[in-house]
């Protein structure tokens, strides 16, 4: 699946504040319609990030294993 991403945050190696917090930060500061990608060295980011997106009613576009790191892509829909 190929998605046009507006903003990629490379949070690989980020211990604190960490990739999930980076996803929240990016989603909060983006305009509606923006597609955000966060790269993480921790697979849990895809699970935690997806759970948060569901809670706040934002769109999870995809998660993927990039071989050694993971990607989560979200779209701000409201």
């Amino acid at each position: 699946m190929s998605v046009a991403v507006d903003n990629t945050i490379d949070a690989r190696g980020s211990a604190c504040p960490g990739p999930t917090m980076e996803l929240i930060k990016a989603m909060k500061s983006s305009a509606v319609g923006t597609v955000v990608e966060v790269l993480s060295s921790d697979k849990m980011t895809t699970i935690d990030g997806a759970a948060w997106l569901k809670k706040v009613g934002q769109e999870l576009v995809e998660t993927s294993d990039k071989g050694g790191y993971w990607s989560i892509i979200a779209k701000k829909i409201k």
């Binding site: 504040p17 999930t20 948060w52």
Partner: peptide
């Protein structure tokens, strides 16, 4: 706390 545990670390 903003994420799903008590601290980022």
């Amino acid at each position: 706390y903003p994420i799903n545990r008590l601290h980022s670390l």
